[in-house]
């Protein structure tokens, strides 16, 4: 090991725990978020892992458009998560409604319903974009201390 530790190593040392992610995907999140978990993109190397229970999670990924039926469950999942919690929204549908702008059943702006910390644009966002968001989460954690 060299004398000087890299910036990332310092950042990683500050983290108390790995970041646990709960996915709430409406379709297109599935097609791009699951590969991120899979072997090629492998988000676990960044110290992030997908959990199956919102009560364990630190980050909630809201992937894609939300219908009225599904945003209700998403809010409930958000309420079940322990503090501190972060919501990250994937895809352009969560910002403006995206290509479903004239659909009667989807919500148009996610921030009206949940406190969104970060938007990842794209339709759907590429895994690299998700990684950039992950890097920003770490930065966010650093600032929180």
């Amino acid at each position: 090991m060299g004398k000087k530790k890299s910036k990332e190593a310092k950042m990683m040392k500050k983290l108390i725990k790995a970041i646990w992610v709960f996915n709430w995907f409406n379709s297109c999140g599935f097609a791009e978020l699951v590969p991120v978990v899979g072997s090629r993109w492998d988000m676990e190397r960044f110290g992030m892992i997908v959990v199956g229970n919102p009560r364990h999670a630190d980050v909630l990924f809201i992937a894609g458009y939300q219908t009225f039926k599904s945003i209700r469950r998403a809010q409930r999942i958000y309420a079940q998560m322990p503090e501190p919690k972060v919501v990250i929204a994937l895809g352009s549908c969560t910002m403006t409604g995206g290509m479903y702008w004239d659909s009667y059943n989807t919500i148009k702006r996610l921030e009206d319903y949940l406190p969104v910390a970060m938007y990842i644009p794209g339709c759907p966002p590429r895994p690299e974009a998700v990684f950039e968001a992950c890097a920003k989460i770490f930065k966010h954690v650093e600032e929180m201390e």
Binding site: N26, S27, Y65, T67, K69, S70, Y100, S103, N105, T106
Partner: peptide, 14 residues
Amino acid sequence: PGFLHRGFEKLMEY
């Protein structure tokens, strides 16, 4: 069902 219902069939009519 219904969590992903966007109404494609009618969106296509527009």
